[in-house]
Computed example of a mutant assay.
Amino acid sequence: MSNLELSGSQSYVTEKPATPSSSSVDHFRVQFWGVRGLIPTPSSIANRYGGNTACVEMHIGNKHLIFDGGTGLRILGKTWQQLKQPLEAHLFFTNSQSNRIQGFPFFAPAFVAENCFHIYGSAASNSASIKQCLYDQMLQPHFPYPLQVMQSKLHFYNLIPGHEVKLDEITITTALINQTQRSVGYRVTWQDYSVAYVTDLQKNIDEIDKERILEIIQGVDLLIANATYIPPTSHKHESGDLHWQTAVNLAQSAGVQRLVISHHHPDDEDDFLDKVQTEVQSVFPKALLASEGLILSVG
C-alpha cells in the first residue's frame, strides 16, 4: 500500500507482506446502513427505504470495510457494540462533505480503547486532509467533545486517487470521479468478485470523469451508484426527467452485472421510490434501490 501519503503523525501503510489469516471466512457481503443523500430524513413517509445518510459495509473474508460515514455509521456502530470483542475495520470516505462524515462523532466503537480503525480519504477542495475534516467537525461549537476523546487506535491515510490500496487479498482501486466535488470512487476486488462504489455522479458528466468511472466499474458484479438530482431548493420531478438514467447508462456501457441505486434525495418519499424502482427495472432488470438493512451477497 505504498500509494498512500502519511497523514500528520499517524501511521502509514507498510510494505510488509500480508499473512493470510487462518480464521478467514469465505464470503463477500454488502450491507446498507444509510441510503440518503444531503441530509438525514426521519419521516413516516421514508420508513421503508430509510432516512440515514450514506454508509455501506462490506464484509469480505475476515475484513470489515466501510464506505462513507453518514448517520448510518451510528447504527452500524450500535450493532458492532453488541459483539463485545475487539474490532478492526477500514473506513473509506468518498469526500468530506457533511453527509459523508456527520456520523463519525457518533460512532460508538471509536470510543473503545481495544478497537482499531484505519481511515482513508483524499484531500478536500480546500486541501484539508480527511483527518483535518473529521477533527474540525468535532470542535466547539459544532460538537461538545474533540476527536481526541476517542480512545480507539485511529490511523489516518491520505489517498491518492488513481492508486490502489492492498489489504491482504483485497484490492481497492481508487479514482477521482467528480473533479468539482473532489470525490473518490472505489472498486473493491477479492478473488474473482468485484464491487464498485461510485456515488457522486452528475447528470452531465465531464468526459475525463466519465473515462475514470468506466474504468473502475468495468464488468463489476455489483455497482453502487446514485441517481442524479438538482439542488433541494428546486427539487421536483418533471415528466420525462429520468434522474436515474446516468447510472443505468454507465452500468450498461460497462457490462455491470447488478446495479443498486442509493443516496436518495431527502424529498423522495417511499411511494415515489417504489415507482422509480419499477422504472429502472424496466430498463435494467438486475437493478434495485437501496434500503437500510439491505444485504447482498456478491458471487
Rank of each mutant, 00 (worst) to 15 (best):
L222P: 00
T246H: 02
L222T: 00
S9A: 09
D271C: 12
V149Y: 13
H265N: 13
S43C: 07
T79F: 04
Y135G: 10
M150V: 10
K275R: 14
L38I: 14
D268G: 00
A196F: 00
T79N: 12
F143G: 03
A254D: 04
Q281W: 04
S7F: 04
Q85I: 14
Q132S: 11
Q191N: 07
A290W: 02
K16W: 04
A290D: 05
Y12S: 13
Q102V: 10
A46Y: 03
L242R: 09
A128F: 07
L223T: 00
I230F: 09
Y186P: 01
T246P: 02
K210V: 02
S11H: 05
Y49R: 07
A54C: 13
D168V: 08
L6G: 04
A175R: 04
G70Y: 06
P86R: 11
Q85L: 13
I45A: 05
R212G: 00
P40G: 08
V56S: 14
S282N: 12
G299S: 15
D26A: 10
F117G: 06
V260R: 02
R36C: 01
L91F: 13
T278E: 11
D26N: 12
S234G: 06
F272T: 13
D209H: 00
N95W: 02
P86H: 13
R182S: 13
K236P: 02
K131C: 11
S11L: 03
I60N: 06
N52I: 03
N226I: 01
Y145W: 15
F104V: 14
G240W: 06
C116A: 15
V112H: 15
L147P: 10
H237E: 10
I119F: 07
L154I: 06
A124W: 09
Y49A: 03
P86A: 08
H64W: 09
I230S: 10
G185S: 01
E114H: 11
Y135L: 10
Q179D: 12
A254S: 11
T228Y: 04
G255P: 11
N99Y: 12
G37A: 15
T19N: 04
D206P: 00
L139E: 12
V184Y: 01
F143R: 09
N249K: 10
M1D: 12
G51Y: 07
R258S: 14
V256S: 03
S127D: 12
P40N: 15
W80N: 04
L288M: 15
A227C: 13
K286L: 15
S22P: 02
C55K: 09
